[in-house]
Amino acid sequence: MERIRKGKENMATIFALSYQMAKANFKVRNEGSYLGVIWYLLNPISYFVVLLFLGGSIYNNSIPYYPAYLLLGLIMFNFFLSVTGSSSLVISGNKNFIKSIKINPLTFIFANILTNIFSHAIEVILFIIVLLFLHINPIFVVFYPLIFLCLCLFTTGISLIFATIGVYVSDWQNVWKVLGSLLWFVTPVFYVIKKADSAIGHINYVNPFFHFLTIARNLIIYEKAPTLFSVCGIIAFGIVTFVVGLYIFNKKARSFAENI
């Protein structure tokens, strides 16, 4: 009982501190003004515009409501890439803290994710505007937090693993840059998989991102209920990845200080 209470207290401190750190990061990045928010939107918007143009003029796609389809895929993938991309440097970047004060290193991982959640929220608002523009009823966005929760667990799990690797492999970021862009092309972010039994269809069957995107798009844009199988799939992907990540991270966390 005492252990559970202590654990709860620890988690509360970790979350409180990571929230403060994320807030500070966010303030620094925006230089204290709301205009800075525009910079967050610039990246997804520029991709969005280019791909929209390509999608419309090159392969003449027949995806209904393509702008919404594309933007939702982009912002979800963008969140994942930007969290995981920075996570391998989170521990070494906070070297000064880890070596000089007793802070649970989970704090830095959560702070990184929270910072990205703030900016993701702004992208979601942009997405809702696009939905309204396309005369799609945005009511189903209310389900998005549930899908996002699974995505968040999955992303946290991966970033815990990457943060641990990053302590021992200093250039892991470069490795992930290559792997991450492969994943980006394999996942139907800006295209659609027409044949499920093609090579890419088979690959995507085990690609968690394919399922995250499919469920979110079907539900929010096309108002189609997801299958029970795929819902269980993303919940399982999320929880398993998170638990594995947390296990690896906690196992190695004791020796972070002397390896960075």
Binding site: T13, A16, L17, Q20, M21, A24, K27, V28, E31, G32, N96, F97, S100, I101, K102, I103
Partner: peptide, 30 residues
């Protein structure tokens, strides 16, 4: 364990923000 005074001060933040941030790092509630 204290190795420097004011660990975690971020120069781009205001003094007030820094008091709250460094305080949190030192384990104080808001």
């Amino acid at each position: 364990y204290l190795t420097s005074m004011g660990i975690g001060i971020i120069e781009k933040l205001s003094m007030k923000d820094n008091i709250f941030l460094v305080g949190a790092i030192m384990g104080m509630s808001q």
